[in-house]
């Protein structure tokens, strides 16, 4: 075998291997999703009909219509989108800023602060839920407001305040990611900027920030997705308001209640009720995830481009 032939053979084998692995892994990821999608078009009877496996015999949009009405979908979508966008933009900005400070300045506090950022991640949010709620319910900056605490629950403020100070949900992780990114960057560019007379902030915004775009996009994606799916903080600070995760949690029981109230014959047995919530929930889940998937598709394109551009620059 010549060297050229050998090289071609290796490349063919590695292509086959790669394709096989990717198809296998993709199947594992997509299969539950497809099940969900196919279930969302079924009616309750078909769900436990053994002969109906993937495609509903009489595909119906009934479940989607139920979700549209009982989630108050347009309103929930708007609320979730606005909150998510505000929170994720602020979180990315704050965490990049803080991450840079932790990566590039060596002083007694830098190691300690990084430790604290990780420490804040390790504490499950369930643990500080009640004190945090009370904190915002009777917001009073260590007595500055002198016994006239403001109620911030039900407003955007708890989200905004925690986001701009890098202390929202999993922000320790974002700080850490950005810190690792900045640490991996070469120092020469930055030193050149200082020599040319750039101040701290100019150097950060004009020299370091543009090279950190891959990190920014990753952090933005995480922040957006986790805020979108979050029910923990939105339930805590925004209870009673209509956001997608809360709407999804309640949609099946709301729909069932309406049916109970209007149609006496349809009073459901336990099993039917379970199946009913399954088909409704699956449709609802698709409706919650779809906007996220669309945004993800758009971001993905930008993501691939942006990381490759910076990759070339090095």
């Amino acid at each position: 075998m010549t060297r050229l032939q050998k090289k071609r053979l290796t490349s063919i084998i590695s292509t086959i291997f790669r394709t096989a692995v990717l198809i296998g892994v993709s199947y594992v990821i997509i299969q539950p999703m497809l099940t969900r999608l196919s279930t969302s078009f079924m009616n309750v009877e078909e769900l436990y009909d053994q002969s109906v496996k993937w495609i509903a015999r009489n595909p119906t949009l009934y479940n989607y219509r139920q979700c549209w009405v009982h989630m108050n979908y347009p309103q929930a979508l708007f609320n979730t989108f606005t909150l998510t966008l505000v929170v994720s933009v602020l979180q990315v900005a704050a965490c990049t800023y803080i991450g840079y400070g932790l990566a590039r300045f060596k002083w007694a506090g830098s190691g300690l602060l990084l430790g604290l950022a990780i420490f804040s991640l390790v504490v499950p949010p369930q643990m500080i839920r009640i004190p945090l709620y009370l904190h915002f319910r009777f917001f009073d900056l260590f007595g500055i407001l002198k016994g006239n605490p403001i109620n911030l629950v039900g407003t955007y403020w708890p989200f905004i305040l925690t986001a701009i100070t890098g202390s929202g949900f999993r922000n320790g992780l974002y700080i850490y990611i950005m810190r690792q990114f900045f640490r991996g960057m070469s120092k020469e560019l930055e030193e050149a900027a200082y020599v040319d007379g750039g101040g701290l902030l100019t150097t950060f915004f004009r020299v370091m920030l543009p090279s950190a775009v891959p990190g920014l996009v990753v952090v933005f994606l995480f922040s957006f997705v986790w805020q979108w799916n979050d029910y923990f903080y939105t339930t805590m600070f925004m209870s009673g308001k209509n956001f997608l995760p809360q709407a999804l949690e309640q949609v099946a029981s709301r729909a069932a209640n309406v049916i109970h109230a209007t149609d006496r014959v349809a009073v459901m047995s336990g099993l039917v009720q379970d199946n009913f919530s399954t088909v409704i929930n699956n449709a609802g889940m698709i409706m919650v995830i779809t906007p996220l998937l669309i945004i993800y598709l758009l971001m993905q394109r930008y993501f691939v481009e942006s990381i490759e551009r910076t990759g070339l620059v090095g």
Binding site: I98, S110, V123, I164, S167, L200
Partner: peptide, 22 residues
């Protein structure tokens, strides 16, 4: 100075919204 300029938001946030409830 650089360290403080870049990390003060976190110092505030950590104290108020984490350490205190913790």
């Amino acid at each position: 100075i650089g360290g403080l300029v870049f990390t003060f938001p976190f110092i505030i946030g950590f104290t108020l919204f984490f350490l205190y409830p913790f």
